[in-house]
């Protein structure tokens, strides 16, 4: 039997082709369990090319045992790290304070002065913006003069 337990092979087909693997267990005449530089999974014998060397492994050896043998021979080993799922940021809903109905007339009075205040603030911000834009070109000219000197 060529495809015996412990036989080192090279995978021919698939996305992990051209990588070395060991036969860990036989499921069928045609299907075999592999491990090594490849994810631990079943594989058809047609997709394996056996090499000369045979490793001493028990039937159904774990990944760590196979990894030891491979590292002694100097081959790479495929290792999958578990994904770190980042904590999703939890949305905190803004709690609207619902006041009682008695405060409605008081609200209306409060709204009107608020609107006036908002208009004043808007005017102020506009003035500030204009002032800023006036200042900026002045600063630029100062810099240019300094460079020329």
């Amino acid at each position: 039997m060529v495809f015996e337990i412990g036989r080192v092979c090279v995978k021919i087909a698939g996305r992990d082709s051209n990588r070395r693997c060991v036969i860990v267990d036989t499921v069928d005449d045609k299907i075999v369990l592999i491990d090594g530089d490849v994810r631990r999974r079943k594989c058809n014998v047609i997709h394996l090319e056996p090499l000369d060397s045979v490793i001493k492994i028990k039937k159904g050896a774990s990944h760590s045992e196979v990894a030891k043998e491979f590292k002694d021979l100097g081959f790479n080993v495929w290792e999958t790290k578990p994904r770190k799922t980042a904590e999703r940021p939890k949305k905190v809903r803004k709690v609207k304070e619902k006041p009682a109905e008695e405060e409605k007339p008081a609200k209306k009075k409060a709204e009107k002065p608020k609107k006036e205040e908002k208009k004043e603030e808007a005017e102020e911000t506009e003035l500030e913006k204009i002032a800023e834009t006036e200042e900026k070109p002045k600063k630029k000219t100062v810099k240019k003069v300094a460079k020329k000197e």
């Binding site: 021919i12 087909a13 082709s17 090319e49 090499l51």
Partner: peptide
């Protein structure tokens, strides 16, 4: 997603890998 994918067909890539292994 295979070595020589997009360059060689599956059969030719298999033959190439066999040659290199032997």
């Amino acid at each position: 997603e295979r070595p020589f994918g997009g360059m060689l067909c599956s059969k030719c890539s298999r033959d190439l890998i066999k040659k290199q292994a032997r």
